[in-house]
Computed example of a mutant assay.
Amino acid sequence: MSQQFQPPAPDATPHSAAPAPGPSGADFLAPAPAPFPAQSGASFLAPAPAPAPARPANLGLGILAAFVAALAAAAAYGGIMNAIDREIGYAAVGVGALVGFAAGKIGGRNPVLPVVGAVLAVVSVFLGELFFYALAVAGAAGVGLGEVLSSLGVSGLIDIWNEQADIKSVLFLALGAFTGYGSAKKIGD
């Protein structure tokens, strides 16, 4: 006689009172449920977005940006020194950082730009110190800045710088160069 398969009879006990069924072979092959509810439109296991393509290095724009930043930073540096009537190292570091940042951010990864940033940072710190001396002479003489610049000229301001320069002045030039190089290299990468 042939046997027919009979489905099990429905259980009369509530499910909370029923013993938990043991694991079967199919339970091990089934995917595990997600630990968090599904997010709308996003998945926790989605691949990371592709990195942005590297922007091309633009040497000309990087040098131009560093030059403009050097002029602006020199004016600010000279003005700050005139306002407090002394040199400060943090401002020289800020000048170098600004010049290097402009070179690296606009110019990209060109290996020449950190060197340009260092050189222009030194020029900027030096011009800032000359501007400080011009402002100090104008204030002491009670004349305008234009009159001081026309009577002394750049060579007269350089002579004043040579008389007043000490190890601290040279250190501030070096700090500007170091920071200009480092920030251009870091931002450009």
Rank of each mutant, 00 (worst) to 15 (best):
G94V: 09
L59Y: 00
A76T: 02
A65L: 06
S150T: 15
P111W: 01
G60V: 13
K105H: 10
Q39F: 07
I160V: 14
G89L: 01
L152K: 08
G78S: 01
P47E: 10
A38F: 03
F67K: 00
A118Y: 05
V125G: 05
L71N: 01
V123N: 13
I158S: 08
G146I: 08
G153M: 11
V93T: 15
G100I: 00
P51Q: 11
G104Q: 09
G146W: 06
D159S: 07
A140Y: 05
A83H: 14
A165C: 05
A50M: 10
G128V: 13
S124E: 10
L145W: 10
A69Y: 11
S151E: 15
I167L: 02
A72V: 08
A102Q: 02
D159Q: 13
P35T: 04
A121S: 15
V99A: 14
Y90L: 15
Q39W: 02
P111L: 04
V95I: 14
G108A: 04
V125P: 11
P37I: 00
N110F: 03
F36N: 09
L98H: 04
G94E: 08
L120C: 07
P49G: 13
L127H: 03
S169F: 08
L127F: 09
P56Q: 02
I84T: 00
K105T: 02
V68D: 10
L127P: 07
F36T: 07
F67P: 01
L130S: 07
Q164P: 06
S124R: 04
K168W: 07
F132K: 03
V115M: 01
Y90S: 14
P111D: 00
P111M: 01
P51H: 10
P56Y: 00
G128T: 04
S124N: 06
L120F: 13
S151A: 14
A97N: 09
P114F: 03
A50N: 09
A92Q: 00
A38T: 11
A141L: 08
K168E: 08
A97K: 02
M81A: 14
P37C: 03
L71K: 07
A138I: 08
A32K: 09
F132W: 15
V99G: 15
F131C: 11
F67C: 02
W161G: 02
A76Q: 06
S124D: 11
I80M: 04
N110Q: 03
R86W: 09
I88V: 15
D85I: 07
L113E: 02
A52Y: 08
A97C: 12
N110W: 05
E163L: 09
G89M: 02
L45I: 12
P37S: 09
I88C: 00
